[in-house]
Design a protein around this nucleic acid. Structure first.
Lengths: 111, 111
DNA sequence: CAGCTATATACCTTACGGGGTATATACGTT
DNA sequence: AACGTATATACCCCGTAAGGTATATAGCTG
């Protein structure tokens, strides 16, 4: 687990980040909101912390986690060269997202 | 290998996409630019193609690959909720990138 | 201090994806 | 048709990361 990109490849980690986007949360808050086992949450938070996506502060026995934007900015920066393609496909995104929302179908080709 | 995000977790695939960002390329072109074995390039292209990141057209025995922006737009859209953090950290990104360029140190704690 | 709550870590197991190598397919050239 | 080039696919192997379970650590409360 090295790169910034592989960190956010994990769905639970993206969910955690999205949750933290609105506000600081404790481990327990995350556990409850996302319905994940506590050790799992802690493990993901460790990965996110070590990669700089989040930082924590202590509040009694809890740790409150919050977003650190730098790694996300890095991803945003990586996208820059592709933005010139955006314009032509203004509405194609919605269709794409619709098509992608059902479980990504595995293609069994040439049976 | 399902999600849009896990696709771009792979460094070679990101390199391929970056290469295609500037212009359409054949498999051989990619192979040579990135110094990757040909089967590896073909395999990555297959993954990228099935996930909608690229499309190909035929030119004699070659296949010319080009970017399809939708999945990248999806990532861009996912970043939206975090953009409100950008402003405070205008220059923090550079320092972050500097700090991250050497191999991400694995922490061996409590031996 | 004992016991409770909150969080972190260690350990085991398993699945999956990527690298490498060999081979198949498709088209082009002579 | 035979051969060469371009690309795709099949197969095997291995590392690694995620899930689950158990346990350790830290702080609070009585």
């Amino acid at each position: 687990m090295e790169s910034t990109f592989s960190i956010i490849a994990e769905p639970s980690r993206r969910a955690i980040l999205s949750l933290l986007a609105s506000a600081e949360q404790s481990v327990g808050d995350i556990e409850e909101h996302l319905q994940l086992p506590q050790p799992s949450v802690s493990k993901h938070l460790r990965v996110l912390r070590e990669a700089g996506f989040v930082e924590s502060r202590v509040d009694a026995q809890r740790r409150l986690y919050r977003i650190r934007p730098e790694p996300l900015m890095e991803i945003d920066a990586w996208l820059a060269p592709f933005r010139r393609y955006w314009s032509q496909h203004l509405d194609a995104l919605e269709r794409h997202l619709d098509r992608m929302s059902p479980p990504p179908r595995r293609k069994r080709k040439k049976k």
